[in-house]
Design a protein around this nucleic acid. Structure first.
Length: 615
DNA sequence: TGTCAAGTTGTTACC
DNA sequence: CGGTAACAACTTGAC
C-alpha cells in the first residue's frame, strides 16, 4: 500500500483549534504536501446535546468557524471550512472512503471524552488504511510530557509545574510555527458533494440544552447543511433565538489576533500586569485581556500569546523597566493554565468530579452528585417523541434550603448585590473576571451555601464562553479548598470584597439596575437602607413583590452571611479532620455518612490520615 | 525528619 | 477618612 506523494489526500479535522496561525497539526498536515486538502468540522451531537452550552458560547463557536472559513477562502478561493453534521465516529469513515483520504490529521484533545472518541477514530482509521497524524497544540507544554516529568503524578502546585517544564525545554514553550501562505485545493465540486451518502440522524435524547431551544434543532436534517453547501450553522438552525446570545464578546481568529496585538502594543500594561491586582468590578472595558475564550476554541494560540508577552518582557528588561513577577504576571497566568491541564491529564475523567478523584478532598456538601450508578439511571430522560424535558440533574437534594439557595445563586437573586451582579454578568455576557469567579465560587461552597462545587462547576460550564474543563474543575476545587488550596478560613466576603475595588458600586448599578439609585452607603447592603430611602430610590428590598408599591423590588439577603461563614468554617474543619478523598469507596457507597455523623458535626476517627492532635 | 514559607483574604488597629 | 501593616482558625510543598 505505498502511496506516491502526489496522491496524498489530507482530511484535516478541526476541533478546538479554530485558527490558521501557530497550529502544529495544520503545519504537519501541509508538510505532507497533499494534492488534495479538506479542512472539516464535524458537528458532534455529543457536544450539541450532552455538553452544557449556553447561547453565548454557541455563538462564539460559530463566529470562530465562520472566521476560519473566510480565512481559508482568502488563501484559496476554492477552500472553506467544510462543516458536516454528523458524529465523527460515523461520518469520518464515510468521508475517507468517499474522498479517498490517505491521511487524517488533527490536534490532540485534552478532555476525557474527546480522548476516548479520538482513540476510537484512530483505530477505525488504522483498519481503513488511513494514516493518522496528530500534534499537541492546545497548551504551552504537552500535558502528558509534563506529567511524566513530574514523576507520573498530577501537577498540584506551580513549583511542581515549573520544575517539570524546566526539564522539557528549559521552561520555554515552543516558538509559534509559521502561518500557511497557501493551501491546496479540495476535490472538484461534484466529488465534494455528499448527497449520495447515508446520513445518520443525531440522537438528541437527552438534550441538556433543551431549555434554550425555542424551535426544533434542524441542523442534522442534511449532512451538508440546509443549503447543501457545508455552511457554518446558525443559532436559528440549532433552534436558539439569536437574541438570547447577548454577550458583547466576539469570536474568531481575526478578532483574537487583533486584540492580542493591541494589548502587546501597550508594553506598560503587559509588563506591570498582575492578575490579583486587576479589578473584578471593571467593565467596559474589563481589567484583563478577555482572551480566554479564544484560548478555549483555539482561535488564539497560547504559545503565541506567551511568546508575544515574553518578548515584551525581554525588551523591557533591556530598557531597564521593571516587570511584574510570576505567577501573578501574564506569562505566569498562562503557565497556571498548564498546571490544571497536566493535573487533569494524569487523572482523566474523574478530575472534573468528586467521585473517583484521588486529589479532591471529600466534603459533606449539600446537593452532592449522586454516585455514578444512580446518576446513570436518572440520565436516561424521556423517550423519543416526548416533549423535550431537561433531565433531572443527578444530585441529591438533601436540603430544600440549599436547593433554593442554589437556584437563587444561579439566577442572581441571592440578595447580596455583589454576588448577584457577578452572576447576572455571567448569564448575560458569558464572562466574569477571575476574582469575581473566586467570589461567587467561595460563596456557593465553603463561604456561604455549603453546596457542592460540582453544582457550581456545571453552572459555569453552561454559561462561560471560555469554559474549559481542566481550568473550571481545577479552579472550583481550589476555591472550595478541596484541592490545590487549603486555607479555608480565608473567606471572601460578599460585601467587603467588592467594596474594596468599587466603593461606589458602579458594577452593581450596571448589572443590578433596580439598585442603581441607591446611595453608595447601602449599595452593597441594600437591606440596611431605611424604608423611606428605598421608596425614594424606587426599589423596595423585600421578598414579597406585592409589598413593592411601584413594582420594583430586590430580594432580602437569603441568609445571614456571618452566621453561614461560621457554620462553613466549622464544617470544613471537620471535613479536613475526617480526611476522606474522592477516590475512597465510601464516597460512592455512602459510607462517608458514618464518618461525618448524623448531624454532620460528629465524625469518627479518620483512617487515611493522622488527625493533628494538640492535646 | 524538621522547619519554613507560601498559598489570588478579612479585619483591625494605627498613622 | 484613606491608606497600610500586622495578624489570623490551616495545610502543603520545598529544602
Amino acid at each position: 500500500m505505498k502511496k506516491s506523494s502526489s496522491n496524498i489526500v489530507v482530511l484535516y479535522w478541526h476541533r478546538t483549534d479554530l485558527r490558521l496561525h501557530d497550529s502544529p497539526a495544520l503545519d504537519a498536515a501541509l508538510a505532507l504536501k497533499p494534492s488534495i486538502f479538506i479542512p472539516i468540522w464535524t458537528w458532534d451531537p455529543h457536544y450539541v446535546y450532552r455538553a452544557r452550552v449556553g447561547p453565548n458560547r454557541w455563538k462564539f463557536l460559530m463566529e470562530c468557524q465562520s472566521d476560519l472559513s473566510r480565512s481559508y477562502s482568502k488563501l484559496n478561493s476554492k477552500q472553506k471550512l467544510w462543516v458536516v453534521r454528523e458524529a465523527p465516529q460515523t461520518v469520518l469513515p464515510k468521508l475517507w472512503k468517499k474522498w479517498g483520504i490517505t491521511h487524517l490529521v488533527f490536534e490532540r484533545d485534552t478532555d476525557a471524552y474527546a480522548r476516548e472518541r479520538d482513540l476510537a477514530v484512530m483505530q477505525m482509521a488504522e483498519k481503513a488504511g488511513v494514516e493518522v497524524v496528530t500534534r499537541m497544540g492546545r497548551t504551552l507544554f504537552d500535558s502528558d510530557e509534563l506529567v511524566s516529568k513530574n514523576g507520573g503524578k498530577p501537577t498540584m502546585s506551580m513549583s511542581q509545574l515549573e520544575k517539570a517544564a524546566e526539564k522539557i525545554n528549559g521552561g520555554k514553550p515552543a516558538r509559534p510555527v509559521e502561518t500557511p501562505k497557501s493551501v491546496p485545493d479540495p476535490w472538484e465540486e461534484a466529488k465534494m458533494d455528499l448527497s449520495d451518502l447515508d446520513h445518520e440522524m443525531a440522537d438528541s435524547n437527552p438534550d441538556l440544552n433543551a431549555e434554550y431551544r425555542e424551535k426544533e434543532d434542524r441542523q442534522y436534517a442534511e449532512l451538508m447543511g440546509p443549503g447543501k453547501d457545508f455552511g457554518v450553522p446558525t443559532l436559528e438552525e440549532i433552534g436558539i433565538d439569536p437574541s438570547m446570545a447577548r454577550a458583547p464578546h466576539r469570536g474568531g481568529e481575526s478578532a483574537a489576533l487583533k486584540e492580542l496585538s493591541q494589548f502587546i502594543a501597550d508594553d506598560e500594561y503587559i509588563g506591570t500586569f498582575e492578575k490579583p491586582k486587576t479589578s473584578p468590578a471593571a467593565f467596559e472595558p474589563q481589567a484583563t485581556t478577555l482572551l480566554s475564550p479564544h484560548l478555549h476554541f483555539g482561535s488564539l494560540s497560547v504559545r503565541k500569546f506567551w511568546w508575544d508577552v515574553q518578548d515584551v518582557f525581554e525588551k523591557r528588561k533591556k530598557a531597564k523597566k521593571s516587570n511584574a513577577a510570576p505567577p501573578a504576571n501574564m506569562p505566569g497566568q498562562l503557565l497556571f493554565r498548564d498546571m490544571y491541564f497536566a493535573a487533569q491529564a494524569a487523572i482523566g475523567g474523574p478530575f472534573a468530579k468528586v467521585e473517583g478523584n484521588p486529589i479532591v478532598r471529600f466534603v459533606d456538601w449539600h446537593l452532592q452528585s449522586k454516585p455514578l450508578q444512580a446518576g446513570r439511571k436518572q440520565e436516561k430522560g424521556t423517550e423519543k417523541g416526548d416533549e423535550k424535558v431537561l433531565p433531572a440533574r443527578d444530585y441529591d437534594v438533601d436540603s430544600s434550603d440549599a436547593e433554593e439557595w442554589f437556584q437563587r445563586w444561579k439566577t442572581g437573586r441571592t440578595g447580596f448585590p455583589w454576588i448577584d451582579a457577578l452572576m447576572r454578568q455571567l448569564i448575560t455576557e458569558g464572562w466574569i473576571h477571575h476574582l469575581g469567579r473566586h467570589s461567587v465560587a467561595c460563596f456557593l461552597t465553603r463561604g456561604g451555601c455549603y453546596i457542592s462545587w460540582e453544582r457550581g462547576a456545571e453552572v459555569f460550564e453552561e454559561y462561560l464562553i471560555d469554559h474549559e474543563t481542566a481550568s473550571n474543575a481545577g479552579n472550583w476545587m481550589w476555591l472550595s479548598c478541596t484541592a490545590f488550596f487549603a486555607q479555608f478560613y480565608r473567606c471572601y466576603s460578599p460585601i467587603a470584597f467588592g467594596k474594596k475595588w468599587d466603593p461606589n458600586g458602579d458594577f452593581i448599578r450596571h448589572y443590578v439596575p433596580e439598585l442603581a439609585k441607591f446611595d453608595k452607603k447601602f449599595i452593597y447592603e441594600p437591606w440596611k437602607a431605611p424604608i423611606a430611602d428605598q421608596k425614594k430610590w424606587g426599589c423596595r428590598v423585600t421578598n414579597d413583590e406585592k409589598e413593592a408599591s411601584n413594582g420594583k423590588s430586590y430580594p432580602k439577603p437569603m441568609f445571614d452571611f456571618d452566621e453561614r461563614r461560621q457554620f462553613c468554617l466549622d464544617k470544613m474543619k471537620n471535613a479536613y479532620d475526617v480526611g476522606l478523598y474522592g477516590n475512597d469507596e465510601r464516597v460512592s457507597n455512602g459510607g462517608w455518612k458514618e464518618l461525618f455523623g448524623e448531624d454532620g458535626q460528629g465524625g469518627k476517627e479518620p483512617e487515611k490520615k493522622k488527625r493533628k492532635t494538640s492535646t
